[in-house]
Design a protein around this nucleic acid. Sequence first.
DNA 1: GCCTTATTAGCATAATCTGCCAAAATCATA
DNA 2: TATGATTTTGGCAGATTATGCTAATAAGGC
Lengths: 160, 160
Amino acid sequence: MPKSQIDQIDRKILTRLQKDGRIANNDLAEAVGLSPSPCLRRVKALEESGLIRTYVALVDPAMVELPVNVFVSVTLEKQVEERLDSFEAAIRQRPEVLECYLMTGEADYLLRVVVPDLAAYEQFLKTHLTRIAGVASIKSSFALKQVRYETALPLHHLAV
Amino acid sequence: MPKSQIDQIDRKILTRLQKDGRIANNDLAEAVGLSPSPCLRRVKALEESGLIRTYVALVDPAMVELPVNVFVSVTLEKQVEERLDSFEAAIRQRPEVLECYLMTGEADYLLRVVVPDLAAYEQFLKTHLTRIAGVASIKSSFALKQVRYETALPLHHLAV
DNA sequence: GCCTTATTAGCATAATCTGCCAAAATCATA
DNA sequence: TATGATTTTGGCAGATTATGCTAATAAGGC
């Protein structure tokens, strides 16, 4: 891979698009100090390289009645590769699981689950999580408040 | 507030925009079964109500050299309101902290921190996290792999 | 210093957005 | 069930924005 060298202008573009994914190309161009044409070319290149994965709308969780964040530590019975894959496949089916990480240390997986209320979480546990083959133990931790939620990655370390 | 009643069409719009924030209004309108004009009107209303918070570009963490996810459990010395606020203010200053939750149970806060490598995480710990006033204990858990990362909230429960 | 290559600016065309008005649908009330 | 008021919709027109093309500029190698 030729690494395609992300320069300062690309970094500015990414930082801006991570904040406002719908900024008009003209405005983006002005913000990064280019004319619209080469600016658009760079954006397209970043999209095609896969560096920009996608554009999304972010919805306010409270306003769609999803105020409850639960972090779930899951341990599997045996760490067989096959089991990991089937667990991950099962997790990917559930839309309320917004994040899932394979972890070092005690637990095998850490999930972030979003639900309308505790009843819905209980439902999720009983109907789905405990029914996944190989799940040995589950520990739930509830968030009282979402203090911060960012999707923009910090790009300072790319400065050349 | 009259609650403005989210109907099935709004739900379709939100679901679509959560997947593709840059879809053309014409295409969105067709997808949800409206003509462009009322579709755009609904989108604007959703934006102005704050239900759609913003639009962002999602960047691939690996491609910008940010492969390391760390979950950090932080306990404060005393749970004084003032301390919580100052801790949260300090956390909001750090761009590598993408998520922060006030938790029930043992730890006070759970953070998700994204860094290029372990050295950068050590730097973050020593230079920033341990220097925040009131921090009593820190426990770091490293993710081996990001199995799933979604920004789209599940909206099935809004079905009327 | 010259030539090659890559990147840029500006313009013209095409696509898209968005406000306005009449028509259709919905709803409450009698 | 009929009626009228209110809300929502569809289609059109003007304005904005995106995007491909070409020439000019800048960067890099020899």
